[in-house]
Lab assay of single mutants.
Amino acid sequence: NARWTTEEQLLAVQAIRKYGRDFQAISDVIGNKSVVQVKNFFVNYRRRFNIDEVLQEWEAEHGK
Rank of each mutant, 00 (worst) to 15 (best):
N1W: 09
N1S: 09
N1C: 06
R3F: 08
R3D: 15
W4F: 04
W4S: 00
W4T: 00
T5C: 04
T5K: 06
T5G: 01
T6C: 09
T6K: 15
T6G: 08
T6Q: 12
T6L: 14
T6D: 08
T6M: 15
E7G: 10
E7Q: 13
E7P: 04
E7V: 08
E8T: 02
E8C: 00
E8W: 03
Q9P: 06
Q9T: 08
Q9V: 09
Q9W: 05
L10N: 07
L10S: 10
L10F: 06
L11Y: 06
L11H: 05
A12K: 03
A12G: 09
A12F: 13
A12Q: 00
A12D: 00
V13F: 10
V13I: 13
V13H: 12
V13A: 05
Q14W: 11
Q14C: 07
Q14Y: 11
Q14A: 13
A15S: 07
A15F: 02
A15I: 04
A15L: 14
I16Y: 07
R17K: 12
K18W: 05
K18Y: 03
Y19C: 04
Y19E: 03
Y19W: 07
G20V: 02
R21T: 14
R21A: 12
R21P: 11
R21M: 15
D22C: 05
D22N: 13
F23L: 13
Q24W: 05
Q24S: 11
A25G: 06
A25M: 15
I26G: 04
I26C: 00
I26E: 00
I26V: 07
I26Q: 01
I26D: 12
I26Y: 02
S27A: 13
S27L: 02
S27K: 00
D28Q: 14
D28L: 07
D28F: 04
D28M: 09
V29H: 15
V29I: 07
V29S: 15
V29C: 09
I30W: 03
G31A: 07
N32E: 06
N32A: 06
K33V: 00
K33D: 03
K33W: 09
K33P: 01
S34D: 14
S34R: 02
S34F: 03
S34I: 00
S34V: 00
V35I: 02
V36D: 15
V36W: 12
V36A: 15
Q37V: 03
Q37F: 00
V38G: 01
V38K: 00
K39A: 08
N40E: 15
N40A: 15
N40T: 09
N40I: 06
N40F: 06
N40S: 13
N40Y: 09
F41W: 08
F42M: 12
F42T: 02
V43S: 09
V43Y: 06
V43L: 12
N44P: 00
N44C: 10
N44K: 11
R46F: 12
R46W: 12
R46K: 04
R46D: 07
R47M: 11
R47N: 14
R47Y: 12
R48K: 15
F49A: 13
F49P: 05
F49R: 09
F49L: 14
F49E: 07
I51K: 00
I51M: 09
I51G: 05
I51C: 03
I51E: 06
I51R: 02
I51H: 04
I51V: 06
D52N: 07
D52C: 06
D52W: 03
D52R: 04
E53C: 10
E53P: 04
E53W: 09
L55K: 03
L55W: 04
L55V: 11
Q56N: 09
Q56Y: 06
W58E: 10
W58M: 02
W58R: 11
A60M: 13
A60V: 09
E61V: 09
E61A: 08
E61N: 14
E61F: 06
H62Y: 10
H62F: 07
H62D: 07
H62P: 09
H62T: 11
G63D: 09
K64Y: 05
K64T: 14
K64H: 15
K64Q: 09
